[in-house]
Design a binder for these strands. Structure first.
Length: 307
DNA sequence: GCGTCCAGGTCTACC
DNA sequence: GGTAGACCTGGACGC
């Protein structure tokens, strides 16, 4: 077992905890958060080898990382790990335009370092997780992903399991996803997304550098069975595109709690409210709805409390 | 203990 | 293009 320490220079606005609790992924394996040490555990793959990454931010200007893997770790693998962390924390995205547009309304979010969304080690991982959020409670999403990683995730250092690859998932029949992972009617979608990704019929990883508009990207994402408008627009948010609102029943319920009672169609009220943010409307909405997750007295945001 | 509702939707058939 | 109904699971709730 090899272990190495390295640091990453952090941009001045970066707040690790804000990114970790940007949405629900930290509650799903292989991610884990240690509140007492403020350490994010992530699992990635470097040259097909599973690496455990333990990330903390001891100073505003720096991330410290402990990387563990089976076998020796070279300088090159450290560089690759830095790239993986950069992707996971969404550090390549620039939010200056949003904060310029948003002004004082979102000064609190700028102060918190909000903007980047925590992402899995691959777009495939994010897409499968998004599929598991559809039409069910968060606790069921958690159960499905826990079972998936437990059953198919390859073991890495210190017993952690990586998220399964498309190839590993494609090998299993849809019955497996129904009977073992207990995904219900979503079983065929789990099988199909794995096959589509493994065969490169659609290259999900290409979505990171998709050359077209967000509308075109949403159209491509929706070619994957099981990923509809909600899933596609929220995947786009992870990819740094916020043109879509990605509304779900939780958003419709929370909006009146944040912005006051709404007469009539809540979805239309949300569209009207955030229209002025243009290409950033999805971010403005999400920051509004999750502001209470980042209050100083909150140790674990409400949606992530174990049930 | 049991029945009902519904949750961080999507798909298909039908109009 | 819009909409109704089916689809799985499991937690919450009322009785």
């Amino acid at each position: 077992m090899a272990r190495t320490n390295f640091s990453i220079k952090a941009p001045p606005w970066l707040r690790l905890r804000t990114i970790v609790f940007s949405h629900g992924w930290v509650d799903l394996p292989p991610f884990a958060w240690n509140e007492s040490t403020k350490t994010l555990r992530a699992v990635g793959r470097i040259n097909r080898r599973i690496v455990l990454l333990e990330i903390e931010q001891p100073k505003v200007s720096r991330l410290d990382v402990v990387m563990t893997a089976k076998g020796a770790l070279s300088e090159s693998s450290i560089d690759q790990a830095k790239a993986v962390i950069n992707e996971m924390l969404g550090l390549s995205h620039d939010f200056a335009e949003f904060y310029e547009l948003a002004g004082e309304d979102f000064a609190w979010a700028k102060e918190l370092g909000s903007g980047p969304f925590l992402r899995g080690a691959s777009v495939f991982e994010d897409a499968v997780k998004m599929l598991a959020t559809t039409n069910c409670s968060w606790s069921l999403t958690r159960q499905m992903i826990n079972r998936l990683v437990d059953e198919l995730g390859e073991k890495g250092p210190e017993g952690v399991r990586a998220f399964p690859t498309p190839e590993q998932m494609a090998e299993r029949p849809s019955d497996f996803y129904r009977d073992v992972i207990r995904t219900g009617y979503r079983a065929k979608f789990f099988k199909e997304i794995a096959e589509i990704s493994a065969s490169r019929k659609i290259d999900l990883e290409r979505w990171k550098q998709f050359p077209g508009t967000t509308k075109e990207l949403v159209t491509e994402i929706r070619q994957v069975p099981g990923l509809g408008r909600y899933a596609a627009e929220n995947l786009c948010k992870l990819l740094g595109r916020f043109d879509g609102l990605g509304l779900d029943s939780w958003c419709l319920k929370k909006f009146p709690m944040v912005r006051g009672p709404v007469r009539g169609d809540v979805a239309k009220a949300i569209e009207r409210h955030y229209k002025r943010f243009g290409a950033w409307q999805g971010l403005a909405l999400w920051l509004d709805l999750t502001r209470d997750w980042h209050q100083k007295d909150v140790t674990v945001p409400e949606p992530f409390k174990k049930k």
